[in-house]
Design a protein around this nucleic acid. Sequence first.
DNA 1: CGGGCGTTTGAATCAAATCAATTGGAGTGG
DNA 2: CCACTCCAATTGATTTGATTCAAACGCCCG
Lengths: 260, 260
Amino acid sequence: MLSARPQSDRPHVRPVVAPSPVRADDEANRLASQSIADTLALLQATLTPQRRIVHAGDRIYQSGERFGHLYILNSGFAKIVNLAPDGRELVVGLKFRGDWMGFDGIAAGAYACDAVAMDTGEVWVLRYDQLLAACIGRPELLKMLHEAMSREIARDRDSLMSVCTLSADARVADFLRYWAESLARRGLRTDQITLRMTRAEIGNYLGMTLETVSRALSRLARNQLICFVEKGRRDIHIPEVEALAAFVQRSVAPADVVLQ
Amino acid sequence: MLSARPQSDRPHVRPVVAPSPVRADDEANRLASQSIADTLALLQATLTPQRRIVHAGDRIYQSGERFGHLYILNSGFAKIVNLAPDGRELVVGLKFRGDWMGFDGIAAGAYACDAVAMDTGEVWVLRYDQLLAACIGRPELLKMLHEAMSREIARDRDSLMSVCTLSADARVADFLRYWAESLARRGLRTDQITLRMTRAEIGNYLGMTLETVSRALSRLARNQLICFVEKGRRDIHIPEVEALAAFVQRSVAPADVVLQ
DNA sequence: CGGGCGTTTGAATCAAATCAATTGGAGTGG
DNA sequence: CCACTCCAATTGATTTGATTCAAACGCCCG
């Protein structure tokens, strides 16, 4: 567990000062943010979806419920919880502004998961049949729908990749990176994020126990990749998102770079 | 691994039903098989897809390649391999007759994975734009497409569930169960299956090492849940698929039922 | 026949789970 | 305001399941 001296071989701990105020990614994020806004605007214009305010803990839809609607998060955060018939439950996805929910119900005619709000927010409700009807003659709507489904498939595979190939520390780092990146793409600040999940939930999402999550976070903090913001350990400050990505990379690569 | 806490001690211990020669599942499988055949027939009738013969090891599409086509397996087996920029690679999906491939490319405009044939088979190639055009005015075609994407999303989540909540032994058992079930749904015999993957590949798919796969198989064989067919350890005989499912269930549940 | 690969199995090691104790903040009620 | 509980989180000690390292076997094929 305790290995090589830290200080020397830690090129990633750069001074907290932002290197350059405008990075290449910033433009990409601006575009992504705009794209999400455009999507929402188009939906609103063509379908005038029903709006629904949700609060932390509210179920947007539930496993077993008859499929009929798709949902889009206009604000807030949500988690997707997969339920096995035997009682196992697992957080299989996190949703942010502009994300779609409910695709899993199309094939079976009933939802296979619960979608649970993690914060106060607004959900737009679309009747699936109306959406399909609206898609006829509006190719951009269909394109949008397919892209959302495609993104979900690609994202799920990345999750699988993460749990199958990364160590616990790297998985937690990757989780934080993913969360921060998701915020960045929506034009939100990423230097300080508020996790809306307990350690137990994070662990459930990442396939590890809550103690392991806690230890991993402590190690990341010890190595300056993150730091906790004053009272409570829910708010996390990330000086450099790139440093987290770099850490994940190194943990995969040959080297023996380990957290102290 | 982690204990995806069973929410309560729900006694789901269903009795091991006496194996009647004609099970309820048989009818479901016949229907599923018919549905796959219908799908293929419809596609052929409306789009006359290009047919392509592939052999084990052939790439159906490759990561990075510009997206433009969707692929449907008419016969044979294929695996989907996700590639991370850092070189990690992971089998994230298995495909059987009637399965679609290439959805992951829609959003990004380029495929994110390799699709690799594991056997000689036939792939149908559809131009995505033609498919979309054909969907206008043929709702059943669009329905079919969406159901395929939905199924993939649901399946990916089940995979995640498997790697996150099951022990190595249970994961291997669940893998065999899934493979057998996939064959059953296509009207193929399931009592004896030929794995088209090495232990290393299985391990990669399940997030464990090849040695662990080998040990798990040995334990399953020792407990009569499977047995190897004469020469070579590629062919596996599964006396009762339900027994594998039951084993997975038990390994999740409280009890201390463990393989010898 | 011999080489190469895939597989099996054993022994040692290690990362993460489990068990257990403690802290600390948030909320409640006297 | 403090005493109290409750629950999330941290941290340490220990156990355990899986990986790693290593050796040997069996099958296929030139």
